[in-house]
Amino acid sequence: MRLEPLASDDPRDVLRALRGAVLGAGPAIALGEAPALPDEVPAGTAVVLTTSGSTGVPKSVVLSRSALTSSALATAARIGEGHWLLSLSGGYVAGVQVMVRALVAGRDPAILAGRFTPRAFAHAVSGMHSMAGGERVPTYTSLVPAQLQTLLDAADDPDVLRALRSFETILIGGQALPVPVRERAAELGVRIVRTYGSTETSGGCVYDGVPLDGVRVEAAGGELRIAGPNLADGYLGDPDRTAQTFVTDPAGVRWYRTGDAGTVTDGVVAVTGRIDNVIISGGVNVSLDRVERVVQSVPGLEVAVVVGAPHERWGQTPVIALAGSADAALLAAARAAVEAELGKPARPDRIVPLATVPRLASGKPDRRAITALVTRG
C-alpha cells in the first residue's frame, strides 16, 4: 500500500486524508515529523504516526484500519455513540482517534480550529446541534488535563460551564489527572472519564481503570502489558524495537509492553508511573511519577510538574516546576505530604517558578525541556 506524508496539520486536512485511509482504499497517511519513510507500507495500514513523546527518540508507529476501527467501536460500546468535538491536535493519536470515532459513526466531528481558549471551546460547542429522530444527539469530546484545568478555571463564565456540562462524556487522557481537578469537575457537574493508552494501542483503551471490551491488561514483573485487536502492527523500519516492545507469549497472545509500572486487581488497572522515570536520591530509588501525584494533591499545586535535578549532597532530588510564583508555605506543604506517603528521600527540594510550563503538541508536559530549565536554575 502507498504511504503518503501529510504536510498539513490542519485538522480538516487530516480528517479528509483519514476518510480515505480508514474508510476508503487509501493511501495510508504519515503524520508527525518523521525521518525519511518508505513509499510502501503493509496492506491494511491506515496511519503511520511518528512521535517522540517525552523520550526524544522518534518512533513511527504503524496503525492498521482494523486496529483504529476496533478501538473506535469499543469506545462507542462503552460510552455511547454521538457527535464528537475535536479539541486536540490532529497529529497525535488522541486527535486521530476522535476523528476515527466520528467517521465510523458516520458523522463528521465539529472542529475547534486555532488556539484553544475557553471562549473558543464554548463557541465550538454552541454549534453542535445534531438531531436524530427528533431528539438531540449526545455529544462527546476528548481533552488533556491541562485543557480541562483551563476550562474549569474559566467556569465562572456561564457559557463555558454550559459547554462543559453539555457533553455526555469528556474523555481525559495523555497524562495522569490530578485528584483535585477530577473532584472539581464532579462538583461542577462535568462528566469525565479517565483514559489510559498510547499510540501503540490506538489511543485510550482503559476507561476509569477498566479495559475496553476485547482488551486485556496484565502486570508482568510489575510492568503493565496490553493485548487486543487495537494494537499497532509495530514500528516502521525498526524490527528490533518492534520485537522488544511487542512480544508473543507461549499461548500465542501478542502483547504490547507499555513501560509503565502498575497493577491489575480484580480487573481494575492502576498505573503507578513510568518504569524509567526514577531517580536515585541519597542511594534510594524515587519514582518521580509517584511524587508528582502526591504533590498535585496539595491545593495550589494541582498542575505542577515534578522532575529530577542534580543535588550536591544527594546526587539527585525531585524538584517542582510551576507556572507562576510559589511561597515557602506551599513547598512546606508539598514536602510534608510527600514525606507522609513516600518517605523523606522523596521530598521535593524546591519549587522552580516558570513563566509557562513547556508542553508537547500533544498537551503533555515537555519533561526534557522542563528539566533543562530547572537544571539551569
Results as ranks from 00 to 15, higher is better:
Asp240Met: 09
Val61Met: 06
Leu37Lys: 04
Ala154Leu: 07
Ala124Gly: 06
Leu301Ala: 13
Glu81Lys: 14
Leu85Val: 11
Gly324Val: 02
Arg2Lys: 14
Gly26His: 02
Gln296Tyr: 00
Ile275Met: 15
Val284Tyr: 13
Pro318Ser: 08
Gly197Met: 11
Ile170His: 05
Ala155Leu: 06
Ala336Lys: 14
His83Asp: 13
Gly173Val: 02
Asp349Val: 09
Asp13Glu: 15
Met99Arg: 10
Thr263Ala: 13
Ile111Glu: 04
Val210Ala: 14
Gly56Arg: 04
Ala43Cys: 00
Gly82Tyr: 09
Asp213Tyr: 05
Arg293Cys: 00
Asp349Thr: 03
Gly174Ala: 07
Thr375Leu: 09
Asn277Cys: 03
Thr117Gln: 04
Asp260Pro: 12
Ala155Lys: 06
Leu49Cys: 11
Gly343Asp: 03
Pro145Ala: 05
Ile351Val: 15
Ala77Glu: 15
Glu339Arg: 14
Gly315Glu: 02
Leu301Ile: 07
Gly203Val: 09
Ala304His: 10
Arg359Tyr: 03
Gly26Ser: 01
Pro211Cys: 07
Thr169Lys: 15
Arg136Gln: 12
Ala321Gln: 02
Pro38Leu: 02
Val190Cys: 05
Val374Gln: 00
Val374Ser: 03
Leu330Trp: 10
Leu161Asp: 12
Ala321Asn: 08
Arg136Tyr: 03
Met1Cys: 08
Ala113Asn: 08
Val41Met: 05
Ser64Val: 02
Asp153Lys: 11
Gly377Cys: 10
Glu168Leu: 13
